[in-house]
Amino acid sequence: MLTAERAIAAGLMALSAYFMWHASALPIGWNGMTGGPGGGAFPFWLSAIMFAAAGGIILRSLWVEIADEGPFFDPETLGAVIAVSVSLVVTVALMPFAGAYIALPLFLLWYLKFYGRHGWVLTLSITLLTPVFLFFFFEVTLKILLPKGWTEPLFIPLYAMFF
């Protein structure tokens, strides 16, 4: 189990370094012209945090003696990891066609209600408020456009209102 933990942490560190390298192609600091962070700021710094967290996992595994509890994934956990991974791949595949404002709420609806078995009030609250938050945070505040796919014409009145 310890070997698997270290291997996954090392893989996350490599993936984080790759993401930071690509994000640094865009400005990662404060952009004085637009009055906000550069286009690569959030991907870069979130990847840096992921890199540090994975490094912490490796350091902890070296300093703390962890009892070997058997396989890293039992069959039930492996099924859950596969189900969520497949749903995330489907969500990413939907984004160019349906857009972020359709794909993400569909993922949240599936994850919260059908996979997590949460109540309808919580599920619908998060599912409906997340796209609203994302629109105002990314598009209105940061001026970073998210993919909209076939829903692009529905945003024209909002663009007229906020831009």
Rank of each mutant, 00 (worst) to 15 (best):
M1L: 11
M1N: 05
L2F: 04
L2E: 11
T3R: 14
T3G: 11
A4F: 09
A7E: 04
A7L: 15
I8H: 03
A9K: 09
A10V: 15
A14H: 02
A17Y: 07
A17T: 11
Y18S: 12
M20Y: 05
W21A: 14
H22Q: 15
S24M: 06
A25K: 13
I28C: 02
W30C: 03
W30R: 03
N31R: 11
G32K: 01
T34H: 12
G35M: 08
G40S: 10
F42D: 02
P43T: 05
F44Y: 15
L46T: 13
L46S: 11
L46E: 01
I49Q: 10
A52D: 03
A52N: 05
A52W: 05
A53F: 10
A53M: 13
A54L: 01
G56V: 09
I57R: 08
I57M: 14
L59T: 09
S61M: 07
W63V: 12
W63S: 13
E65C: 04
E65G: 14
I66N: 13
D68G: 04
D68F: 10
E69Y: 08
E69V: 11
G70Y: 06
F73D: 00
D74W: 00
P75Y: 01
P75S: 01
P75K: 01
E76H: 13
T77N: 12
G79E: 08
I82W: 10
A83D: 09
A83H: 04
V84L: 01
S85N: 02
S85Q: 08
V86P: 05
S87D: 04
S87C: 12
L88E: 04
V90H: 07
V90F: 11
V90L: 14
T91C: 15
V92R: 07
M95H: 00
M95W: 03
F97A: 13
A98G: 09
G99H: 01
G99S: 04
A100G: 11
A100C: 10
Y101H: 07
I102L: 14
P105M: 05
L108S: 07
W110A: 09
W110T: 03
L112G: 05
G116R: 10
G116I: 06
H118V: 08
G119I: 05
W120I: 14
W120G: 05
W120V: 13
V121N: 00
V121S: 10
L124H: 02
S125F: 14
L128E: 03
L129M: 15
L129A: 14
T130I: 08
T130Q: 07
P131M: 08
V132D: 07
F133C: 10
F135L: 06
F137S: 10
F137D: 00
F138S: 00
E139P: 00
E139S: 12
E139G: 05
V140H: 06
L142P: 06
I144K: 11
L145H: 10
P147R: 08
P147N: 12
E152M: 04
P153A: 00
L154H: 00
F155D: 02
I156A: 13
I156N: 02
Y159K: 14
Y159D: 12
Y159H: 13
Y159V: 12
A160H: 12
A160Y: 12
M161H: 08
F162T: 10
F162I: 06
F163H: 12
